[in-house]
Design a protein around this nucleic acid. Structure first.
Lengths: 198, 198
DNA sequence: GTCTATAGAAGGATAGAC
DNA sequence: GTCTATCCTTCTATAGAC
């Protein structure tokens, strides 16, 4: 999988960030997990922990986006696509002992007011996620402005549900959030077709 | 305001946790901000940083709950109550340079997989918030099961919008999340009255 | 019970051998 | 360019003077 040293460092860091956050993860722990010599970090990332962090945010964000897109696009329509995304996230959370949720949310909150470089990196990832969701909702017949509002709400529901689910160690929040997201998407599509809700 | 040393330590820690998280905040920074001697931390909190953290989570969680309840209860009905909560959160975020959002979300994500004592503390806070919202939604005529699903969704929307808003330094996410929360509460109340949506 | 000094471990970062 | 040894700072925690 991770064949070279640089790759191993990035994937190991991504996994540690997801579970412990940025400040909770040390460079020594990273090189130990990646089975890499300490100096390799500064060889591949002269900017140190911050540069490594920025790359991990971008790579991790893109990877997760592609994962969600694959689940969404495999569904027959947008409503079941959204439902599948939340159901898949709940299943992953259960299987990983409530560890693997959003790869960048923990870091995003940690650095939002303390590190501008990393804050911008997380903002770029979220912007890409929003654009991805807007495209899919637009393709489902929802107007551009409404699609953007919905896309943001869906991502907020997912992120917030991750916070609640990881804290309480139940998937109830992901299920409640998923039901809400599905209902809103369904309503928006029906309204776009000029039909009222039953 | 904070008249004694112990109180100053707790309020200072709460503020630092909100902006930097648990791992990003050192005890030395806490005593410096609280103008307290270092030894006072271990005098009042023999369990060290963990015990202090648990108390800050509980106190901060209760404080924020009372703040939100005050805003919600000042509104004429549940729909505008929810709208006011999101609008107020957005205003606070703008006024504090996107620093003061949820007092425990950052810590909750940091400790969810690394510190069971603090994880339980955050879970207890979220449980209290959910119960508070369920009461208010039930009082608005929404059935208990639906009220719980909605309460969780509203809190998830708020938490997720905080993540997005702090990262992007805009309040667009809070507005989109607020609109979604309001729409869902309105629908639930109308359905409870046996009326369809227009 | 207020406060200082310091221990002992872990943090990020650097220099330089090979 | 792979790897080791080490520097300096910061961290949590403790001991003990006052």
């Amino acid at each position: 999988m991770a064949t070279n040293t640089r790759e191993r460092i990035v994937t190991t860091t991504a996994e540690l960030f997801r579970r412990q956050g940025y400040n909770g993860t040390g460079l020594k722990q990273i090189v130990a997990g990646a089975a890499a010599p300490f100096g390799s970090v500064y060889h591949f990332f002269p900017g140190g922990k911050e540069q490594l962090g920025a790359e991990v945010i971008h790579v991790g964000g893109r990877f997760y986006q592609e994962l969600v897109e694959a689940v969404w696009d495999a569904a027959p329509d947008a409503v079941s696509g959204v439902a599948d995304v939340f159901a898949g996230a709940a299943e992953t959370l259960r299987q990983t002992d409530y560890a693997d949720a959003c790869p960048i949310a923990t870091v995003a909150l940690e650095v939002a007011s303390t590190n501008e470089v990393l804050r911008v990196a997380t903002a770029e990832v979220f912007a890409a996620w929003i654009e991805s969701a807007v495209e899919r909702l637009s393709a489902a017949g929802i107007g551009r402005a409404k699609a953007r509002e919905l896309a943001i709400a869906i991502i907020a529901l997912l992120e917030g549900a991750f916070v609640l689910s990881r804290a309480t160690r139940t998937t109830e929040a992901l299920e409640a959030a998923g039901a809400t997201a599905v209902a809103r998407v369904r309503d928006a599509i029906l309204q776009g077709e000029g039909r009222a809700k039953p």
